[in-house]
Amino acid sequence: MTTATATAAAPAAEPILVARGLTKTFGGFTAVEDVDFEILPGRVTALIGPNGAGKSTIINLLSGTLLPTSGTVTLHGRRIDGSHAYEIARLGLGRTFQTPKLFAGMTALETTMVARERHARTGLFGAALRLPRMRRDEAAARQAALDWLGFVGLADAADQIAMSLPVGHQRLVDLARALATEPDILLLDEPAAGLDGSETRALVDYIRQIAALGVAVLLVEHDMSMVMSIADHIFVLEQGRKIAEGTPAEVGNDPLVIATYLGSAHA
């Protein structure tokens, strides 16, 4: 059982996000079917599966980019399925995109500052009159954004146009801006795609540090060696259904997984 495994792994921690019976159909096609899972704070949970298995769809469902056809999602014990994406983000869920579309014409710093919306205290009046309060807000936002860009090693690129950066760096800007919302749970959609070896190693390091801060990380990844090395817990998805879960060792030895996923990946 899901719960049994999860609690075995972390007796003390309460799940931060719980999905039950999550289902999404596009027209007649069922992309995600009746999936249950829980995500624990401070852990790296991986979601793996072949292309088209429905991994990105799950991230879109959790983050509110897509509405679930049925099923429930709770974050901190609150139902969030059906809420707007921005509301969910404000509740502490951050995400990255499989193909990040950074904001046109904005520098990496500005892009990351957009993520500080949740922390802003001033509204239209503050902005229109440029009140001191609003300037303090802006200064704080700039500092936080710079800090997070620095965290992913892009401090030097802060005032470059984000979309003109190399693809790998664009991915890191996407990560920095998701982190700058100060999420409690972070969903990463194939973050290592387009990164070279040393960048991937740095990314693994960042993810470990993020989890060490108590953030729950859901990692969607193709790179099995990366998943095996950092995941505390793995779900395996195939054709929209969850076919296995457990620790890396358990999943690695699961005959069904070897046959359907690892088998095909290494064939």
Binding site: S63, G64, T65, H84, A85, Y86, A89, R90, G94, R95, F97, P100, K101, L102, F103, A104, G105, M106, E110, T111, M113, V114, A115, R116, E117, R118, A120, T122, L124, G126, A127, A128, R130, M134, D137, E138, A141, R177, A178, A180, T181
Partner: peptide
């Protein structure tokens, strides 16, 4: 301001902007 920045973000990629709150 923040409002202008947010709107430019929305104009460029609405899903991305919403995912940031």
């Amino acid at each position: 301001s923040r409002i202008g920045r947010s709107l430019r973000a929305i104009g460029s990629d609405e899903d991305g902007a919403q995912s940031l709150g």
